[in-house]
Design a protein around this nucleic acid. Sequence first.
RNA 1: GGCCCCGUCGUCUAGCGGCCUAGGACUCUGGCUUCUCAAGUCAGCUACGAGGGUUCGAAUCCCUUCGGGGCUACCA
Length: 359
Amino acid sequence: MVKEVRTRFAPSPTGDLHVGNIRTALFDWAYARHTGGKLIFRIEDTDRERVTDEYIAAAIETLKWLGITWDEGPEVGGPHGPYLQSQRLDIYAHWAKKFLDNGDAYNCYCSTEELEARREAQRAANLAPGYDGACRDLSADHIANYVAQGRKPVLRMRMPDGETKFTDVIRGEVIFDHKFVPDFVLARADGSPLYTLAVAVDDVLMKITHVLRGEDLLSSTPRQIRVYQAMGVAPEDFPVFAHLPFVMGQDNTKLSKRNGEVSVAWYREQGFLPEAICNYLALLGWSPGDDRENISMKELTELFTVDRVNSSPARFDMKKLEAINGDKIRALTIDDFLERAFHLFLKQASSLALTMKRR
RNA sequence: GGCCCCGUCGUCUAGCGGCCUAGGACUCUGGCUUCUCAAGUCAGCUACGAGGGUUCGAAUCCCUUCGGGGCUACCA
């Protein structure tokens, strides 16, 4: 029996969802729907200083507006919840302890300042900066001494010698020599988990089969695989990785607030249709293969496959979005058009009224 | 600096050894249409980063080089 496809969209809402996030969500969604699988929506809020409840609520709202539906996650629940990482702390603590007991991970007592200084020295000596393994094999005396000093340790994963090799569906075989993958931190001194721990644990526990995510996470993949191994997951059960190309701004750097409008909420306020945004975004890094460009959400689920995703980054082009939006608007029935225009009007009118009231 | 990824018109892309004197879409330019603005329509501009191979034949395969990007956190 073929395993059911389970993809996940796991943003860390530190602001409004931006178009790059949505492109990822769209592909995860389309692939799940294409295969008859499931899309899991998970909130990565291990850094509660940056992720707020407002942003989480906004992310949920934005996805719904776009027509991207999920099968497990906030609001709908599911058998592998909770789906907010901040509510799964005990799970991460369990695995963290296990890794420590097994010797896969170790306590590192180095202070931030010490690490900083050593990194600086490495850079100066033209060496690869990274953790030098100082606390890898501490003697009991040494540890007692650190504890006496009142130092609180972070939990660090031990990267064995060797290499990590995996096949990325979009990029082919990728190899990382562990010389360039230093021991990494799994949990902070206060015991709270880091992305590196939470993401891998959750993907395993939530039975994710396909990880479609941004290319920026490509180099963190060996670390995730290391956690899978420590959890005792068999290699054939590792998820399939597909690292999507970046969405770039006009200046050819990764699209961000600095080089264009990135907030989906902004496009919504401007009157862009959700189906236009999705249609345009689908064409950024993917194409159906023929010359078709007018694609509905339904058609996207029928046509979308990961092997047709491009490996090279794509520039976000407002002009083309506008053109597609125009086509979609003209294709609307008059009733549909009026209703949407009316809703948009009401929304803007009410926010305007609020502004006036404050004066 | 190190490691990794990427490189076809201005932009998004098709192309996976001969169908390519490189196709489509958006943009742009000019024409038609039009009370105006859109829309529509016709035409046009413009690309395989460079250099070596492999091959009868390369945008497609290999190498080098150059360029761009990402990562290199007790962020994700």
